[in-house]
Structure formats: structure tokens, C-alpha cells
Design a binder for these strands. Structure first.
Length: 596
RNA sequence: GCUCUGGUAGUUCAAUGGAUAGAAUAGCUCUCUCCUAAAGAGUAGAUCCGGGUUCGAUUCCCGGCCGGAGUACCA
């Protein structure tokens, strides 16, 4: 690769001329801004002191020496302390010709002996349907998995379904009491929505009861604990844990409805898992670990019988691990599942895609695992992502201020259909093909909208302004891809152009150069994004590439170019761009159509 | 209160410590006899405040102001 050669040479030159020893790898090259002449830029300020030269003089001397050493360098220029180096056209043209049909350009396949990376994501509760926040989780989990896979890792996607607990009992209780035997079949509702409806129903009646008690003179704290519905829900949870048949049957039935609903949403989002864990099977794990910790003296028991971990030395507080009645909490379970997963996969890393509201939880999890003596504690990585906010604040499912996942997808599909019909280019497609197209456009818009934002940051979604299809969006990239495919098809079919042809010697235009350099950057971008767990970097790269291509395409003849060597080269370039767009969008879980 | 986190055009997002802080959208102009105008070109518009480190700070450090999250027997 040209960057390495430049770094090597610069390092060598610095040593020969000024006795400065710099690692070739630590020579920082950046790509030259387009308002300047050149391809790569070296900032020489860091070496000025040691070389005892002015920035300009130093840059000039390095430039001259580099050009002498490397025949690929055709020229250089100096602006202040910036040395801009230009690489010859033939390097770029042969790069394109060599990779024109490389379908895996930019992505690496996994080595056979690679230890897997386990990515946990989604992890839904089975008492209500998925909303926009879950969408971010699912898309991020999927995209990060694909991104890691594109960097040559084996990836196992897992889901830990929270299928037990007081929240489920609330839905069950409300259904029992107010449901009148309603089922997904009888109501025509998707199972998860039906169960969610009764979760809301519970809350409504519960609040009424609390209000009633308060008006009878009870203070609010007590009323919340003493409301009959709450007591009954707790009773139900107890019966569930005891294995009471009636409760278990009801639970099994309603969970089944929810799973059917979730499966539909997952499949619509295009996400999936290698393994699904259920909390009913894991919530008791971890108690043994706690006992082990007590034996080793890293945990302690309070007078009331509860078990704690003291993390004050690490700058945190004390953390509860077992309640005074001996039952386990969330943390206890997570300790257990982490161990289980470690044993099961012998993973290189255990990644948890969980919202940033649980930053503290994962900090504690890692520390406690460490205290328990597990040296793999540092393999636990919390991929923390920000909340999706609405213009008027946070989403609260109980208050009904949520953007439902299924509704949102359906709306997007309608918009995609309306826009497509307006453009009216798809009349030759069958109804099934059209439907598929609307779906991938809708999801392209939604996924790109969410994934282009840095995962760690909160993001805002305004339901009033529906997600865009123009500008910096998924459909823009999809559309660019479809146009490129059209050119390549016509070039091959109508004009008999061969993509296999060896590299011609052609003089590059400025815009061609820009597109080629974008392509050239792709492997580095994927690697960098992988290291940062950031699909956003991939998304922004894909947009940049598509934009560069569009600009080039607008005023550069391709199929009407008269010189056949140039024409062939440009079609090769087109093909390579389409591959790059396809591969980057694939990482984001976005399908690109051949035509639209 | 304490801990963590964020503050960039009207709005939504970018920017390994580097050149004149990029896009998109909304506004105002152009460009379709053409390889797909879901496009392209132009115009106008921003780093919360105050210190510090540095040749150079949106970026790193300290202090303020404003937002968000967490804060122990919920998950």
C-alpha cells in the first residue's frame, strides 16, 4: 500500500537527514484537502524543533528526498508546514483495474482459529412491544456484529430475553381481570401489542387504586406498596416462582404471543441471533458465585442477611448482590450469565449492547468479576449507546409517549411507496418486487438515520418530521448504487466492455481522483470503525463516497466517452464503487437494490 | 448532594491535536433532447462562557453556565 511506503520513506529520510528516529508506523499522514494539490499530506511541525529548520524549509527538503526515493511520487508542494505529496496516475488506475471485480473489497474474512466475539443485543422484556429505543439497540447490535465480522472476527450474536418478573405478572394480571379472553386471533392484534395493551391497562387501574387510597388518607409511598393490584401481582410472581401450574400456563401462553410478535419485528428489521437465552433459565445463576465470593472474603454479609460488594476503594459505592431474603438481583444474574457465556464460547470479547443508563451497572459487573478472580473480566465490554429522545423529552412506555417500532416501519413503507410512485420508474416491476423495494427503501432510510449517529451520543427523533429520503440518507446511497448498476449493465451488455481488462494508462480528472481515493481509504475506514465499534463511521464513509461519485458522474461522460480505454476504465471504476457501496451498506444491514 | 455524560449553522448530524470547522435540511439562485434529476452547481449561515497546556485546541486539562442519565434490596 502506498501509505506504508510513504511512511517508511519519510521515516528513513528523517533519520538520514536529521538523525530523527521515528517509527514508520507513527508517521502521521492525512489525505490532502481538496483545495490543495496532492494526495497525501505530512504535517512537519512535530519535527521542526529537532531538525532545527523552519517548517517551510524542512517540508521542502523532505519532499525532495521522498520524491527521489519513491518513483510513485510525481510531485510535491509546500504550504506553510504542510507537505503535500502527489502520487502518479498509474498507481491509481492500476489500483482500480486490479480491484474492479473484487466482490469482497474492503472486508476481511475470519481466520479459522479466531476466538469468537460474543455480542449480546436486543434483550427485550416480554411485556410490551418494541419501540424506537429498541430499534436503535437492535440495529446497532446487528451492525456492530457485521462490522466486527468484516474485520475478520468470528461473531456470535446472542439475545437474553427477559421473560420473567413482576412486569410480566402485571400484564398477565390485567389480562386475566380485564381481558375477557381476548387473544391475538380474536382481536387481530399482534401478540406483543396485545400484551402491551394490558401492561398499560394494569398501570391505569393501579394508579386509580393508589389515588383512591391516598384520598382515604394513606400517604403515597405506602399506597403504592399497598395497592391491591400491586400486592396481587407480587403474589402472582411468587406463585410463578413456585411453579404454580395455572400461573405458568397463563405465562407460557402470553409469552408465546409476544415471541410471535417479536419474531415478526425482528425479521422486518432484518436482525437475528445465533443463540437466545431466556431469563427463566438464567435468573438463578450467580448465587453460587456469590457464595464463592463470601468464602474468599471479597464479599460481605450485612446483619439483615443481605450480601454486598464493597467498591468504595474503586470510587464506587457498595453494591447489593443478594437480597435479605436470599433472592438474587439483576447483578447476581448477570454475573452468572457472564460466566456461563465465557465457558460456552471461550470468547475473545463479551460485548453487551445496552443503553447508557446502565453504565454504572456494567462498571460494577466488571469490577465484581475481577474481585471474584476471573481474569477474563476485562473481556467484558459494554457498548453503551445514547437514548433516542423525542422533541418533548424521553420516551416513557407507561405514559404512552413512545414511537412504536412496527408503526414506524409501516409508516416508512408507505412514504417509500408514495415517493416511488411519484417518480414512477418501477412500473415494470412485479407487485412483489415493488413491495420488496418499498420495504428495503423504508428500512434503508430508518437504519441509516439511526446508524449514522455516533452510538455513544443521544439522538433526537422528531415524529412530526418523518425520516427523510433525500440528502444524507440511506435512499440516497441506494439510489446512487442503482444508477451505477445501470451504467455497468449498459456498458457490459450494450457496449461489450470487459471489466477484466488490464489497467490502461489514462490521465485522471480531479473528480475521478477523488472517487478513487475514497475507494482506496475503505479498508482503513472499516478497520478504524471496527476498533471504535462505530457503524456511524462506516455510514458517513458510504455517504461521502456516494456523494463524490455523484459529483463525478454529473459532468463526466462515461458511456459516451469516445476514448475506449478511458470508457473502460470509468466503467471499471463504477463497478468498484458499486461494490464498495454494497459492502459498506451490508455492514449497516441495508440492502442496495440493482434498480429503483 | 455525589458520579457519569453531552453542549458545533434556524434544525438534524460530521470533524486520529493541524491548513479557510464539513454535510444534510429549511431559505434564495441556476442546470433535465443526456449513462436513472430520489441528482448536480452556486449563495447565505455555527464551535456555551472564562482560564491553562501546545508551534497549533471544536478536540486535552481546570473552573463556571445549561441539558441528559444513574444514585444500592427494579430490570
Amino acid at each position: 500500500m502506498i501509505e506504508q511506503q510513504l511512511q517508511q520513506t519519510i521515516s528513513q529520510v528523517l533519520n538520514e537527514l536529521y538523525g530523527i528516529s521515528v517509527d514508520a508506523a507513527s508517521v502521521v499522514l492525512q489525505s490532502t484537502k481538496k483545495e490543495f494539490e496532492g494526495d497525501y499530506t505530512l504535517v512537519v511541525f512535530p519535527y521542526v524543533k529537532q531538525a532545527r529548520k523552519s517548517p517551510e524549509a524542512l517540508a521542502g527538503e523532505i519532499g525532495a528526498a521522498v520524491q527521489q526515493h519513491l518513483s510513485l511520487v510525481t510531485s510535491y508542494n509546500v504550504v506553510k508546514g504542510f507537505l503535500n505529496i502527489a502520487v502518479c496516475d498509474s498507481y491509481w488506475t492500476s489500483f482500480v483495474a486490479d480491484n474492479a471485480t473484487n466482490a469482497t473489497y474492503g472486508i476481511r474474512s475470519a481466520a479459522d482459529d479466531a476466538a469468537p466475539i460474543v455480542v449480546e443485543y436486543s434483550s427485550p422484556n416480554t411485556n410490551k412491544p418494541l419501540h424506537l429505543g429498541h430499534i436503535r439497540n437492535n440495529l446497532l447490535g446487528w451492525a456492530v456484529s457485521e462490522l466486527l465480522a468484516a474485520n475478520g472476527n468470528k461473531v456470535k450474536k446472542v439475545n437474553l430475553v427477559n421473560d420473567r418478573g413482576i412486569h410480566i405478572c402485571k400484564s398477565m394480571l390485567a389480562w386475566q381481570r380485564y381481558g375477557g379472553g381476548e387473544t391475538p386471533e380474536s382481536s387481530g392484534m399482534k401478540g406483543d401489542h396485545l400484551v402491551g395493551k394490558y401492561y398499560v391497562e394494569f398501570d391505569k387501574h393501579y394508579k386509580d387504586e393508589v389515588k383512591q387510597l391516598v384520598s382515604e388518607g394513606m400517604d403515597e409511598e405506602t399506597a403504592k406498596k399497598e395497592a391491591p393490584l400491586m400486592l396481587e401481582a407480587q403474589q402472582m410472581l411468587k406463585r410463578w416462582e413456585e411453579g404454580d401450574k395455572e400461573v405458568r400456563d397463563l405465562w407460557a401462553m402470553m409469552n408465546k404471543w409476544v415471541y410471535a410478535g417479536f419474531d415478526q419485528t425482528y425479521s422486518s428489521l432484518g436482525v437475528g441471533f445465533d443463540k437466545i437465552y431466556y431469563e427463566r433459565n438464567t435468573y438463578l445463576l450467580g448465587k453460587e458465585l456469590v457464595q464463592k465470593g463470601l468464602d474468599r472474603g471479597v464479599l460481605f454479609r450485612k446483619e439483615d442477611g443481605s450480601v454486598w460488594c464493597d467498591l468504595t476503594a474503586d470510587g464506587l459505592d457498595q453494591k447489593l448482590l443478594l437480597r435479605k431474603d436470599g433472592t438474587s438481583v439483576y447483578m447476581t444474574q448477570d454475573l452468572g450469565t457472564a460466566l456461563l457465556r465465557h465457558k460456552e464460547f471461550d470468547a475473545d470479547r463479551l460485548i453487551y449492547v445496552v443503553g447508557n443508563e446502565q453504565d454504572y451497572h456494567f462498571q460494577v459487573l466488571k469490577l465484581v468479576l475481577g474481585k471474584l478472580g476471573f481474569d477474563w473480566a476485562n473481556k467484558v465490554y459494554h457498548l453503551s449507546y445514547g437514548m433516542v429522545e423525542l422533541p418533548n423529552g424521553k420516551m416513557k412506555s407507561r405514559e404512552g409517549t413512545v414511537v412504536d417500532a412496527d408503526d414506524l416501519i409501516a409508516e416508512m413503507e408507505q412514504t417509500a411507496e408514495a415517493m416511488s410512485r411519484e417518480h414512477g420508474k418501477n412500473d415494470d416491476l412485479s407487485p412483489e418486487q415493488q413491495k420488496h423495494l418499498y420495504h428495503i427503501l423504508a428500512l434503508g432510510a430508518l437504519k441509516y438515520f439511526i446508524l449514522k449517529v455516533d452510538p455513544s451520543k443521544n439522538m433526537l427523533f422528531n415524529p412530526a418530521e418523518s425520516i427523510d429520503f433525500n440528502g444524507n440518507t440511506g435512499p440516497f446511497i441506494q439510489y446512487t448504487h442503482a444508477r451505477i448498476r445501470s451504467i455497468v449493465r449498459k456498458g457490459i451488455e450494450d457496449q461489450g466492455i470487459s471489466l477484466q481488462q488490464a489497467s490502461p494508462s489514462v490521465a485522471l480528472t480531479a473528480k475521478e481522483r477523488e472517487v478513487i481515493k475514497s475507494l482506496h481509504d475503505m479498508p482503513a475506514v472499516i478497520a478504524q470503525a471496527g476498533a471504535a465499534y462505530s457503524p456511524a463511521m462506516v455510514a458517513n464513509y458510504a455517504y461521502e463516497l456516494a456523494k463524490n461519485f455523484n459529483s463525478f458522474y454529473q459532468d463526466t461522460p462515461i458511456l459516451r466517452e469516445e476514448n475506449s480505454a478511458i470508457k473502460t476504465f470509468r466503467v471499471q471504476l463504477c463497478n468498484m464503487v458499486s461494490i464498495a457501496l454494497k459492502n459498506t451498506m451490508h455492514i449497516l444491514g441495508i440492502e442496495v437494490p440493482e434498480r429503483m
